[in-house]
Design a protein around this nucleic acid. Structure first.
Lengths: 176, 176
DNA sequence: CACGGTAGGTTCATTCACCGAACCTTGTGG
DNA sequence: CCACAAGGTTCGGTGAATGAACCTACCGTG
């Protein structure tokens, strides 16, 4: 963990994990990756993160095996950052954090609602489907806008995220 | 979030939650609270955190309603920090982070194993008991040392955590 | 009553990460 | 030849984390 130091003294899987995902901005980058964001400038526009910090986080997540950097066109050379299987395994973590924020921070209306695409049931706190009793992989999760969401956001990434979509589905902003 | 700034631009429950629990050390303090740690000096010994930072985190978590500060003796006046219901609701978050760390960080042996105290079955990936089919609240979780744990740690808090115990059960270090 | 110890902090100087703005590089299209 | 876009790097200023030292009650003991 670059933030200060690592948690060297901690004999704990939680501490080991936080060395990877515990820095400022990191989990928001991963969240955006689940939402379909893949390109540097889209992360930048959606997060409002300093450019240098974003570059550092993308590199650290790539080195940790959470993201893969992948060339998607040759001329001009352009890369995208996509979640690995290890990165996709962070979905229960993000789900539980989001649900806690919605239920335990005062004045928080639901911003986005996550349902099992197959049956329409809202997911539980670990991303499981309470109706089917199964783990739902993020590919089978549909994200819908909630009541607390700004209906007319400024940046194009937020606008593209206003319609219901599957998680991990690549985001198309207004590049024609 | 005191680390730099908050995530003001983010219309998202995850970002709101991370403003409370996303700072360095904060989730480890909450984890220790689940393990039964309640007193300033025990957090200090177990985490190796700078004193000023610990004082700040305990105050911030108390103001956020995750912990309560409670006087447990009058003379000399001594306070303890205990999880509120809101704090206990962070159990799925900690569980999923720990599970991810154990499965996706190379070379990580299980440090601690969490089982349903009523039946001894290890918890499933969304905190349920696979045998009983029920969600298990943290009060009913028994924590057992895993193979990756140092069998002879230096600080008394880690030593007290070497034996199987219920989550949230107050920790007794070697104070007679 | 002086003394040492304990719990729970605060203060301080230093280091380090975050921040925002400016700049750079490569390639494309007009 | 110029403007533009994507995807960065560089830079000075600010603020937080760090570790050590210090502080304040209060207690138990000789």
């Amino acid at each position: 963990m670059a933030l200060g130091k690592d948690y060297a003294t901690q004999q704990c899987s939680i501490a080991r994990a936080l060395e990877v995902i515990g820095e400022r901005w990191t989990l928001l980058v991963v969240r955006d990756a689940f939402y379909g964001v893949r390109r540097y400038n889209d992360f930048l526009a959606h997060l409002g993160i300093p450019r240098a910090v974003l570059a550092g986080r993308l590199q650290a997540l790539t080195e940790a095996g959470v993201l893969v950097r992948r060339r998607y066109q040759e001329s001009p050379p352009r890369d995208e950052y996509v979640l690995t299987d290890s990165g996709k395994a962070l979905w229960p973590t993000l789900r539980s954090i989001g649900l806690w924020g919605r239920e335990h921070i005062t004045g928080t209306l639901p911003m986005r609602v996550f349902v099992h695409a197959a049956c329409g049931t809202e997911l539980g706190s670990y991303g499981q489907c309470p109706a089917c009793g199964t783990d739902v992989p993020p590919e089978d999760v549909e994200m819908r806008p909630g009541r607390g969401l700004d209906p007319d956001p400024a940046d194009p990434v937020s606008r593209a995220l206003l319609v219901p979509r599957r998680l991990l589905q690549p985001l198309e902003t207004d590049r024609v």
